[in-house]
């Protein structure tokens, strides 16, 4: 089933589902003001962007920021989980989805950044860049978040087969270990921004820790293993 061409389409749609859910909520499906109405094949709009955002709780800025941020860290965890699951469940074909899931982590990260830029900073376009840089330097949680997303940029760019060829498998793999850093930085970003209830950031932190510990363990085993056994040991990816 994992090899089926349609499985990839299905996973793609699943990855898009959180965004779809948020958009549906904004458009008024599931309560609130109905922004878009479809009647007899005719689509009518009954409100603008601000009305749509109004459907996303009393504080849409906070809602969209948290929603996109939550999904970014979740997709980083999903990406990091692919290799351990492949090895432990003996499902090598899971590799087909790793790139897509990783790119979705970057996608939700970009939405998260855009929310911050458009809703928080865009009202003052002249001071936007300055305000952004000031925040990045002055607020450690923003520094951590920016670093997490920035580290994902080269990974998104070099995610194609062409780039794997150009860099060579080994170098490509080494570069893509940057995602470990992104995972840690994203959790730190989350931990630093909550006011007092740290349960969720700790939960994601534990997940990232387990997934990284798996790699550390696999690496230690492969290092101490005799060359003849090397083939059976999970590779660190």
């Amino acid at each position: 089933m994992l090899r089926n061409r349609w499985t990839k389409v299905l996973v793609f749609l699943l990855c898009l589902a959180p965004l779809g859910w948020m958009v549906a909520r904004a458009l008024g499906f599931g309560g609130g003001q109905t922004i878009i109405a479809i009647q007899g094949g005719k689509v009518t709009f009954n409100g603008g962007i601000e009305d749509a955002l109004g459907n996303l709780t009393a504080n849409p800025l906070e809602y969209v920021t948290h929603f996109t941020g939550d999904w970014t860290v979740r997709f980083i965890v999903f990406t990091l989980a692919v290799t351990p699951l492949r090895k432990l469940l003996h499902l090598p074909d899971l590799i087909r989805f790793r790139k897509m899931i990783g790119l979705f982590a970057f996608f939700y990260g970009c939405l998260h950044l855009s929310t911050w830029l458009f809703l928080d900073k865009l009202f003052d376009p002249a001071g936007m860049l300055q305000g952004m840089l000031k925040d990045v330097v002055k607020r450690p949680f923003i520094t951590a978040g920016s670093a997490a997303l920035l580290a994902m940029l080269p990974l998104a760019i070099t995610s194609t087969t062409g780039w794997i060829r150009r860099l060579g498998g080994k170098r490509w793999q080494r570069l893509h270990r940057l995602v470990y850093f992104s995972g840690i930085a994203a959790v730190v970003h989350y931990y630093w921004l909550v006011k007092s209830d740290v349960r969720l950031p700790l939960m994601y932190g534990a997940m990232v820790a387990v997934l990284l510990a798996y790699r550390m363990g696999a690496w230690l085993i492969s290092r101490s293993a005799k060359p003849a056994q090397k083939r059976t040991v999970p590779a660190v990816t």
Binding site: L53, N59, D120, F123
Partner: peptide, 17 residues
């Protein structure tokens, strides 16, 4: 310490302006 208090969002506006 973690965010500026210079501006605020008057709910339900989505903008911190």
């Amino acid at each position: 310490p973690r965010w500026s208090q210079a501006k605020e969002t008057r709910l339900p506006s989505p903008f911190a302006n």
